[in-house]
Design a protein around this nucleic acid. Sequence first.
DNA 1: GTTCTGACTGCGA
DNA 2: GTCGCAGCCAGAA
Length: 112
Amino acid sequence: MARDTRTSAERILAAVRAIPRGQVAGYGEVARRAGLPGRARLAARVLGSNTDPDLPWHRVLRSDGRIAFPEGSEGHLEQSRRLRAEGVRVEKGRVRMPRRELDLDAELWGLR
DNA sequence: GTTCTGACTGCGA
DNA sequence: GTCGCAGCCAGAA
């Protein structure tokens, strides 16, 4: 089989880069998109060790639609700031995501 | 080779 | 709505 020569980390990074601007995705979602269903934790690990400034890591959230960082931390502030800059509303560490957009995103990503 | 850790998730209370 | 616990797995030391 034509297995991927890329590592899981590379695939995850690619999946993160595939997130459209102004939209967000969960860790599980990213992992699945990378061909690694259930490896949300790996996605988190990859992002934590990544250093690419062009990587839209701020578009990756937890399954609850919340920012993974504790409120008040630098990462949390930075992420919420970047999301707002893209038109995403962030309130108390929570990202306001209309259901319609979530469904649309899911279809765009998985079903098309 | 083994051990530890973690930007998670789902479920129950 | 929040909190705690257990499971899972890959990467780093």
